[in-house]
């Protein structure tokens, strides 16, 4: 009998049903236009009555106004992700852990950038999301360190050390690239052969493709050299294999656009892409939207797998980004039209 119990769906039914219930508690689409018409105190109050209540209440003594919202959003995101880890077991837990290392990378980048520009530790901590393997305390202690050497030695035991080992201060772009590459190569290498893991692999490879597409658009637009572009791209995509990337990086802007028509992503971006486009904002928003729609689509194909969990994580992240976009936009008095363009709904 043991084999009957052990095989099968491997703890997925519980976590997927729970995550779906959590997904139904995300902010509905209609709320965003309402948020656009509100002032920051009003938004804060609304958030204090929603899923963010606990975070807003907790932080209300320390912060106010925009800072309060910002911290509450970050804390809520970290808490949600940690909750996913807490309620999952075995394979899903392992896959979520690996995926969430993204936030370790994010935090290390934030700290290094902050140090590079001489930002105080408090300001660095504003942008930190303690959802990965590095805990909030650990990140705080790292952010409080003065010298790059101390930061490096604090991270010596982490898997990301090889990227920052040679860093002596100064330009960060190579380090950031290296970190991204380490993250994705670890992620791809960690995925095994079970069905859930294979689905996970497909999803992550698509994510790499979308990331590479964004990089290609940016670098092509800026007219960077082929070798520089290739350095920036992450290997291991789904449709854009290393060979395609190599070819694409050497093409001119118009040839690059023509070449894109061969890939399935073209149908998503064809409407906003043109040869004389000036801003990449639309393309990036469309690609983000494509990622979310893709996640939601595949999560319906395989309802009892890791995919609904990825779908939820993307959506939660998007919700937080959208609220932040609106609040930040309001703060600097951006016209509604521009804020709306940045929102991925």
């Amino acid at each position: 009998m043991a084999f009957l119990i052990k095989r099968g769906s491997k703890k997925y039914p519980y976590i997927t049903a729970r995550v779906r219930a959590m997904k139904s508690k995300l902010m509905p689409r209609e709320v965003y236009p309402k948020l656009m018409n509100m002032d920051i105190p009003e938004i804060t109050r609304l958030m204090g009555e929603s899923e963010y209540k606990q975070d807003v209440d907790e932080l209300a003594q320390k912060y106010s106004g925009l800072d309060l919202l910002e911290h509450a959003l970050n804390q809520n995101l970290a808490r949600t992700y940690r909750k996913l880890l807490r309620i999952s077991k075995d394979e899903p837990n392992y896959l979520i852990t690996e995926y969430l290392r993204h936030w370790d990378i994010w935090n290390i980048k934030t700290i290094l950038r902050g140090k590079y520009y001489g930002a105080p530790a408090q300001e660095i901590m504003d942008a930190v999301v303690a959802a990965g393997q590095l805990g909030y305390r650990q990140i705080t202690s790292i952010a409080n360190m003065e010298s790059i050497e101390d930061i490096k030695s604090a991270l010596a035991n982490s898997p990301y050390y090889s990227a920052i080992a040679d860093y002596e201060g100064g330009e960060l772009s190579t380090i950031e690239n290296e970190l991204d590459k380490i993250y994705y190569s670890r992620l791809l290498a960690s995925i095994g052969k079970s069905k859930g893991e294979k689905l996970s692999l497909k999803f992550i490879m698509t994510e790499i493709d979308l990331k590479n597409l964004k990089t290609l658009f940016r670098t092509k637009k800026a007219g960077l050299d082929k070798d520089v572009i290739l350095e920036l791209l992450i290997p291991g995509g789904m449709e854009l294999k290393s060979r395609d990337l190599k070819k694409m990086s050497s093409l001119s802007w118009s040839d690059f656009l023509k070449r894109l028509e061969d890939y399935s992503y073209w149908s998503a971006i064809s409407e906003v892409v043109s040869e004389d486009m000036t801003s990449l904002m639309d393309v990036e928003a469309v690609l983000d939207k494509y990622a979310i729609e893709y996640a939601s689509k595949v999560s319906h194909y395989y309802p009892i797998s890791i995919l609904p969990i990825y779908d939820y994580m993307l959506r939660k992240n998007n919700e937080i980004n959208s609220i932040r976009t609106i609040v930040r936009g309001k703060k600097v008095n951006l016209p509604d039209e521009i804020i709306r363009k940045h929102l991925v709904m």
């Binding site: 039914p13 519980y14 997927t16 729970r18 219930a21």
Partner: peptide, 21 residues
């Protein structure tokens, strides 16, 4: 029992988030 195992787990999962389920 085999069929109910997964459904029960899913039901408890959904209930943990939303009691009305």
């Amino acid at each position: 029992a085999l069929a109910e195992k997964d459904i029960g787990a899913a039901a408890v999962g959904a209930m943990a988030e939303r009691e009305e389920l």
